[in-house]
Design a protein around this nucleic acid. Structure first.
Length: 232
DNA sequence: AAAGTGGTCAACCGCTGCGAG
DNA sequence: GCTCGCAGCGGTTGACCACTT
């Protein structure tokens, strides 16, 4: 038996999302939630498959996402959990409020894997600084995180034309959804590890302050959206 | 200044698990 | 109990960017 493809391949857009698409998705989910990802793009008027919409929302557009600035504690927690759980990125993500499995997976592969490997070598009495990366990691000041450094580089670049008034206007609009907006729309998404008695308590970080304020992404989206609107 | 190299991260692909009928 | 459709997950890719030579 052949399973039907996840989506109609023809006519569907792939690749990077545009600011316009982001806004359409945000607006649609804001108003309707996402009871059915498969049907969502059609209803929202997006030429994307449901999977793509879901991924974009879960990993990038959800307002309760913290972007960049992995703290040293978070990185250590990822290393610790990975040692316990292996590549269970979604489980690890559930222990790190505001972090997505995709982001954690990326951080692991780009930073932490090497760090762990480096420490193993150090443990074996053969500190190997042949890799420039491990040198950076080991020499940086305590409490600093590498991702903090990299995000500082990437997130602040290219936002010269950002209109703070536009951002604050948009931020003003969020409370209209009500404080319980997200829990209403996504009851199934409540992180069971936090909402229910977690039998295996893990280090908790400060509750995710809502991150729209400090999210470089939103700056970028609204910046690009503004540019887009100028063309309309 | 140009080319090469490596790092980063968003997004896609394919598989799995689960629930409804 | 079986089939089907869906959401979710983990692996992988590729474009972009920064740094080095």
């Amino acid at each position: 038996m052949v399973r039907a493809p996840c989506c109609e391949k023809t006519g569907l857009k792939k690749g990077p999302w545009t600011a316009e698409e982001d806004l359409i998705l945000i607006n649609f989910i804001t108003q309707n939630g996402h009871p059915n990802w498969r049907a969502l793009p059609k209803r929202a008027g997006l030429l994307r498959c449901g999977k793509s919409c879901r991924l974009r929302w879960m990993n990038y557009l959800r307002p309760d996402i913290r972007r960049g600035n992995f703290s040293r504690e978070e990185e250590d927690t990822i290393i610790q959990l990975h040692a316990q759980l292996g590549n269970k990125w979604s489980v690890i993500a559930s222990r790190l409020p505001g972090r997505t499995d995709n982001e954690i997976k990326n951080v692991w592969h780009t930073h932490l894997k090497k760090r762990v490997a480096g420490k193993t070598e150090i443990k074996n009495g053969e500190a190997d600084y042949s890799s420039d990366y491990s040198r950076k990691v080991e020499l940086r000041s305590p409490g600093d995180s590498l991702s903090e450094v990299s995000s500082a580089v990437t997130s602040d670049a290219g936002h010269g034309g950002f209109d703070d008034a536009l951002m604050s206007d948009l931020l003003d609009k969020w409370p209209e959804m009500g404080d319980n907006f997200w829990s209403e729309i996504f009851p199934a998404e409540e992180r069971s590890d936090f909402s229910s008695g977690n039998s295996n308590p893990q280090p908790q970080f400060a509750a995710p302050e809502l991150h729209m304020e400090d999210s470089s992404f939103w700056r970028d989206v609204f910046n690009r959206a503004e540019e887009h609107v100028m063309y309309i």
